[in-house]
C-alpha cells in the first residue's frame, strides 16, 4: 500500500515550453517569406470608389497598375493639386503609358501576355477626361483587358 502512496506524492512534471519558441519562429519565417513589401511608393492619394459588383482580380501577378489621383500632401507644393498619373514610382504623362505597357508586357512570360490586365486605380473624385485619355492610350497599344479598381460595398 505504501507503494501507491509514494506515487501519489509525485509532482506533475512541468511541460517544457522551450519548443514553443521554435513553433512561433516557424510561423514567423512563413510570414516573413510570404510578405512582399510594396515596391512602389504611392505618390498620389487614391480613394477608390465603391461598387457592389466588384470581382476579384484574377492573376494578380499579371497586372499592370496605373494610379490616378491628386499628389500626396508633401508633393503638392511641387506638383500642384491637379490629378496626375503615377506609373511605377514617378509621375508620368499620358504619352508615357505606351512605353510603360510595353515594358510591363516584356516582363511577363510569352504565354501569359494575352492575359495581362491593366488595373486602373483612380480616385473617385478625378474627372473622366484624364481617364478617357488613358483608355484611348491603352487602346492604341492594344492593352484591352482593363479593370476599374473598386471597393466592394458593404
Amino acid at each position: 500500500m505504501s507503494k501507491f502512496k509514494q506515487e501519489d506524492k509525485k509532482e506533475v512534471p512541468a511541460i517544457t515550453s522551450s519548443s514553443l519558441s521554435d513553433i512561433v519562429f516557424m510561423l514567423l519565417f512563413f510570414f516573413m517569406v510570404t510578405t512582399q513589401l510594396r515596391e512602389t511608393e504611392n505618390k498620389v492619394m487614391v480613394k477608390i470608389p465603391q461598387a457592389s459588383e466588384s470581382v476579384k482580380l484574377e492573376r494578380k501577378d499579371l497586372a499592370a497598375h496605373i494610379n490616378i489621383g491628386t499628389p500626396i500632401r508633401s508633393l503638392q507644393a511641387q506638383f500642384g493639386t491637379d490629378a496626375r498619373i503615377q506609373l511605377n514610382d514617378s509621375f508620368k504623362t499620358v504619352q508615357d503609358i505606351g512605353n510603360y505597357i510595353a515594358a510591363e508586357r516584356d516582363s511577363k512570360s510569352e504565354a501569359d501576355r494575352p492575359f495581362m490586365t491593366v488595373n486602373i486605380k483612380a480616385d473617385q473624385d478625378v474627372r473622366m477626361g484624364i481617364i478617357t485619355e488613358v483608355k484611348q492610350e491603352l487602346r492604341k497599344c492594344s492593352a484591352l483587358k482593363i479593370m476599374y479598381s473598386s471597393r466592394k460595398a458593404e
Binding site: S54, V55, K56, L57, T117, K145, M147, Y148, S149
Partner: peptide
C-alpha cells in the same frame, strides 16, 4: 484587388 472588369 477588386474591381470591375472590362474589355476595351
Amino acid at each position: 484587388q477588386m474591381g470591375l472588369s472590362r474589355r476595351l
